[in-house]
Amino acid sequence: PVYLSVKADNSMFIGNDPVTDETMITALNALTEGKKDTTIFFRADKTVDYETLMKVMDTLHQAGYLKIGLVG
């Protein structure tokens, strides 16, 4: 499974590897070998604001990742 996490300080990680807004999709493409039907499990600290969550989800959708599971 692929886990994308947003921490309380808005830092992002794919698994244990830090990513930025600019590198997130490139890292996901490498990890999933470009398979856009891969489910991305998205988790965020409860203090992360809604705007940040939606920005990340919008970026995922624009890149073609449509299977996003929200996890606690």
Score class of each variant (00 low, 15 high):
V19R: 00
N10D: 06
E33V: 07
Y3T: 11
T59L: 13
L60E: 00
G34C: 07
L60V: 06
A8Y: 09
G34E: 05
E51Q: 13
I40V: 06
T52M: 11
T39R: 10
Y65H: 01
D58M: 12
T47D: 15
D17Y: 14
M24C: 03
M12E: 01
K67W: 09
T20W: 03
T39M: 15
L60H: 00
I25Y: 02
V48L: 09
G72L: 06
D17T: 14
D49H: 13
T23L: 05
I40H: 00
T23Y: 07
L53E: 02
L70V: 11
V71P: 07
T23G: 08
A30H: 10
A8V: 05
P18S: 08
T38F: 07
L4K: 00
R43S: 14
E22N: 08
T20E: 06
D17F: 13
S11E: 08
G34K: 03
K55Y: 07
D45M: 03
G72I: 15
K46C: 10
R43D: 10
S5C: 10
M54T: 11
L4D: 01
T59Q: 13
P18L: 13
G15V: 02
L66P: 03
T39C: 10
T38D: 03
Y3S: 05
T26L: 11
G69C: 12
K35T: 05
M57V: 11
T59A: 14
L53N: 02
K35L: 06
D49S: 14
Y3W: 13
V56P: 00
H61P: 00
L31Q: 07
M54S: 11
M57Q: 05
A8T: 09
V2K: 02
L53M: 10
R43Q: 15
K35I: 07
L66V: 09
A44Y: 13
F42A: 03
K67D: 10
P1Y: 15
P1A: 12
V2M: 05
D45S: 05
N10K: 11
T26N: 10
Y3A: 03
G69K: 15
R43F: 15
G34A: 05
L66D: 09
K46P: 15
Q62K: 11
M57T: 05
N16L: 09
L60C: 01
S5V: 14
K46W: 11
T47Y: 11
S5Y: 14
V71C: 10
Y65W: 05
E33K: 12
Y50R: 13
D49Q: 13
V56E: 01
Y3Q: 06
E51T: 11
D17R: 11
D49K: 12
T52A: 08
F42R: 00
V48M: 05
A8D: 10
I68D: 02
V19E: 01
L53P: 01
H61V: 11
S5G: 04
T47M: 12
K35E: 07
A30M: 13
M57I: 12
H61I: 13
N29V: 08
T47H: 13
K46A: 11
T20F: 05
D9R: 04
D9S: 07
K35P: 02
L53G: 01
E33D: 14
T59D: 06
M54G: 06
T59H: 10
G15C: 07
V2Y: 04
T52P: 02
V56F: 06
G72Y: 03
T32H: 03
K67A: 09
K35F: 07
V2E: 01
A30Y: 10
Y50G: 10
D37A: 06
S5L: 13
S11Y: 06
F41C: 11
A27L: 13
D58Q: 13
R43C: 11
L31W: 08
T26Y: 11
V71M: 10
K46E: 14
S5M: 10
D21N: 15
Q62G: 09
Y50M: 12
V6M: 14
Y50K: 14
K36D: 03
P18Y: 08
I25K: 02
S5D: 15
D49F: 06
D17S: 12
P18G: 04
V71Y: 07
N10C: 07
A27M: 14
T26H: 12
V6W: 07
G15M: 10
M24W: 06
E33Y: 07
I40G: 01
T20D: 10
T20R: 05
L60D: 00
V6C: 03
E51D: 11
T39Y: 14
K36F: 08
S5H: 15
T23M: 07
D37I: 03
L66C: 09
D9M: 04
K46L: 09
T52F: 14
F41K: 06
V71S: 09
D58I: 12
L4M: 07
I14Q: 01
L4E: 01
A8L: 06
Y3I: 14
F42M: 15
K46H: 11
Q62F: 07
L66M: 12
L4P: 01
A63M: 04
V56M: 08
L4R: 00
M57R: 07
Y65D: 00
D21A: 14
L28P: 00
T32A: 03
L28Q: 00
T59G: 06
T26G: 13
G64A: 02
N10Y: 12
M24Y: 06
T59F: 09
E51Y: 11
L28Y: 00
L53A: 04
I40W: 00
M57E: 02
H61S: 10
I68F: 06
G64T: 00
T23D: 11
T26I: 11
T26M: 14
G69N: 15
T52C: 05
G69S: 15
A27V: 15
I14H: 01
E33A: 10
N29Y: 09
A63S: 06
G72D: 15
L4F: 09
T20I: 03
V71F: 08
K46Y: 10
V6L: 13
T20V: 04
D58W: 09
A30G: 06
K55E: 05
Q62W: 05
V71L: 13
S11H: 08
Q62T: 10
I25R: 02
V48W: 03
M12S: 01
T32M: 06
D37Y: 05
I14G: 01
A27Y: 14
K46G: 07
V48C: 05
D49N: 12
N29P: 00
M54P: 00
G69A: 15
T20K: 04
V48G: 03
Y50Q: 13
E51P: 07
I25A: 04
T59M: 15
P18C: 06
V71H: 10
I25S: 02
V6Y: 08
A44C: 08
L70S: 08
G72N: 12
K35A: 09
T38Q: 08
D21T: 15
G64V: 01
A27K: 12
A44L: 12
G69L: 13
T38N: 05
E51I: 12
Y3C: 09
V2W: 04
P1F: 13
K7M: 15
T20P: 02
L4N: 00
T38R: 07
D45V: 03
Y50E: 11
A63V: 04
D21V: 15
K35M: 08
F13T: 08
N29W: 07
F13C: 08
G64I: 01
L70F: 08
P18M: 12
A8E: 10
E33P: 03
T23S: 10
A8I: 05
L70M: 14
M54Q: 14
N10F: 09
V2D: 01
F42L: 15
L70K: 03
E33I: 06
I25L: 11
N29K: 06
G72R: 08
G15S: 04
M57N: 02
V48H: 03
F13R: 04
Y3V: 14
K7R: 09
L53D: 00
V56Q: 02
T38W: 05
K36V: 06
T47C: 11
L60Q: 00
Y65I: 02
M24K: 01
N16G: 11
K36L: 09
K55N: 08
F42H: 00
H61A: 13
Q62I: 07
F42Y: 03
T20A: 04
E51C: 11
Y50S: 11
V56R: 04
I25W: 03
R43L: 15
V48Y: 03
E22Q: 10
L28N: 00
E22S: 12
L31H: 09
L28S: 00
E33F: 12
F41Q: 05
I14E: 00
L31Y: 12
Y3M: 08
A30K: 15
D45H: 09
V19M: 03
E51V: 11
T47P: 06
D58R: 14
H61R: 15
N29D: 13
T26F: 13
L31T: 07
M57H: 04
K36M: 07
I25M: 07
D37L: 05
P1E: 10
A30R: 13
M54R: 15
M12R: 03
F13S: 07
L66W: 13
G69V: 15
L31R: 09
K36N: 05
A30C: 06
Y3D: 03
P18R: 15
I14P: 00
F42N: 01
V48D: 03
M24S: 02
A63G: 07
G72S: 13
I14M: 05
G15E: 05
I25T: 04
V71I: 13
K67V: 13
A30F: 10
R43E: 13
N29L: 09
I68Q: 03
D9Y: 07
G34F: 06
N29C: 04
K35W: 06
F42Q: 00
D9T: 06
I68G: 03
T23W: 03
E51L: 12
E22V: 10
G69W: 13
L31C: 05
V2C: 03
S11T: 14
F13I: 05
N10S: 11
K36T: 08
N29M: 08
M12N: 01
D9H: 07
P18A: 10
T47S: 14
K55I: 06
K46N: 13
I40R: 00
F41E: 08
K46F: 09
H61C: 07
T47G: 15
Q62E: 09
K67R: 12
S5I: 15
K35Y: 08
V48N: 03
K67H: 15
A44K: 04
N16Y: 07
I68H: 03
F13P: 00
T38G: 04
L66N: 12
M24P: 01
I68S: 03
G72A: 12
N16K: 10
L28M: 05
K7I: 10
A30S: 10
G15A: 05
